[in-house]
């Protein structure tokens, strides 16, 4: 038996909306520690890792580890039916190939029950080691989204260069070139407005912009985004979900022949 209650159905709806273009099917692994999902896009170039800790839920019960394979587009269709302020309760047990989403209005006057068919998904889970990164950049998530969208209109790839003073994003295309340089900015009223650069060694990496633009669909989930880079390694783009977990995106770099 699995049962979990979230104060805001809108949070899960937003999470699924932000990842469903990258991955259409995924298996949620449920256990006493929470709900986790790891899935690669069909080209095996990028990966989504979602972690929702059990202590971030209002109620969380998982008697034993349990896998729930879901079509994320179908899940999104149901989550769209939740009211803005509805609570969400998820229920599933191993006897049925169904997960139930219960949407309850704040005054308890409306209770909607949606049952989603679960599916068997064969997926390859990657073992991603905890690594030290050469450079870690935290910046406002809206700023990162603007940069990748702006550069996406110039070129297909972005070259990211981190030095101790700044982080540069550069793109080139048929119409010309663009470089956006962000300096470290620590003296801000709100911590989420900061741009923080932690650099062990300078890095310079190139990535396909369309994936980064896709990752930035998660902007509404967190005011700040953290980008972790090491030479010739996949980049990690992390959005922290306050009090409950994170969504991380991994993207393999482009490397010169």
């Amino acid at each position: 038996m699995f049962e979990a209650q979230m104060a805001q159905a809108a949070l899960l709806k937003q999470i699924i909306e932000s990842i469903r273009e990258l991955i259409t099917e995924a298996t949620f692994e449920v256990s006493g520690t929470g709900m986790m999902l790891q899935a690669m896009d069909s080209s095996h170039v990028s990966l989504v890792a979602l972690n929702l800790r059990s202590d971030g839920f209002q109620l969380f019960r998982a008697d034993r580890p349990f896998s729930m394979g879901m079509n994320l587009n179908h899940m999104a269709k149901m989550l769209k039916c939740a009211g803005k302020d509805d609570t969400l309760t998820m229920r599933a047990d191993e006897a049925n190939d169904l997960v139930t989403f219960l949407f309850e209005s704040p005054g308890n006057e409306r209770l909607a029950e949606f049952e989603l068919k679960l599916m068997d998904i064969t997926s390859e889970n990657l073992g991603i080691p905890d690594a030290e990164y050469s450079a870690t950049v935290s910046m406002p998530s809206a700023e990162f989204q603007r940069i990748v969208k702006d550069l996406g209109s110039i070129g297909d790839t972005v070259e990211i260069t981190v030095t101790k003073d700044d982080v540069r994003f550069a793109a080139s295309g048929d119409i010309g070139n663009a470089t956006i340089k962000c300096r470290q900015l620590l003296d801000t009223e709100k911590p989420e407005d900061r741009t923080l650069i932690e650099m062990v060694e300078p890095v310079n990496l190139t990535f396909a912009l369309r994936y980064l633009i896709n990752f930035s669909k998660a902007t509404s989930l967190a005011p700040s985004v953290t980008i972790k880079l090491s030479t010739e390694m996949p980049v990690v783009v992390e959005y922290k979900l306050s009090d409950i977990g994170y969504v991380r995106f991994y993207l393999a770099p482009k490397i010169e022949d």
Partner: peptide, 14 residues
């Protein structure tokens, strides 16, 4: 031109 690496070039399957 640049090569697009896949994630399996970096991480092993579990």
């Amino acid at each position: 031109s640049r090569n697009q690496w896949g994630l399996m070039d970096f991480y092993g399957c579990l």
